[in-house]
């Protein structure tokens, strides 16, 4: 059967069963809300850790990683349920998901280079280092020299 409006669409989307649909939407809404609440909880936890006398950097990083994963989960539910991508043909899903993989290298490269820029400036711009380095961590970070910078001297 042809779709009334578009010749290229060959299979008619059947209207979903109303009750099942509502149930699915309700479930997703509750799930998104719960994830958001957990995220907020983690955000406040990070705040409390930061307020403490000696913030544990690893712990903060771990919590931040958790929030990232939770956000990805949220994104997954929005895209697959609300945007109905989950109901599309598999190939269609792939054409959306695969190009997004480019973000992996996009993020890694940009972040690495940002970090490297910081290290370079800390090494060659004492004013930058002195004026921006958090006071508590200054001692610790002084020891850090990346191998790259060392080789630059030789």
């Amino acid at each position: 059967m042809q779709h009334p409006a578009f010749e290229e669409v060959t299979v008619h989307h059947h209207v979903q069963d109303d009750a099942a649909f509502r149930k699915k939407v309700r479930k997703t809404t509750i799930l998104l809300s719960i994830i958001t609440v957990i995220e907020l909880g983690i955000g406040l936890t990070i705040y409390t850790i930061h307020k403490g006398a000696n913030p544990n950097a690893t712990l903060v990083l771990m919590f931040k990683g958790m929030v990232c994963i939770l956000s990805l989960a949220k994104a997954f539910y929005i895209v697959s349920v609300f945007m109905h991508l989950g109901d599309e043909i598999r190939n269609m899903i792939m054409t959306i998901v695969v190009p997004l993989m480019l973000f992996i290298w996009f993020i890694i490269a940009f972040i690495t280079d940002g970090n490297s820029y910081k290290n370079l400036r800390n090494k060659y711009d004492p004013h930058f280092k002195e004026s921006t380095m958090p006071k508590k961590h200054q001692q610790k970070d002084k020891k850090e020299t990346t191998p790259v910078e060392k080789s630059g001297k030789e």
């Binding site: 480019l102 290298w105 996009f106 690495t112 280079d113 490297s116 820029y117």
Partner: peptide, 18 residues
């Protein structure tokens, strides 16, 4: 084409390992 952009920037102060 999407993975190689920084070869235009080797001498800008780009991290040499990158």
């Amino acid at each position: 084409a999407f993975l190689v952009w920084a070869h235009h920037m080797f001498v800008t102060g780009l991290n040499p390992f990158l």
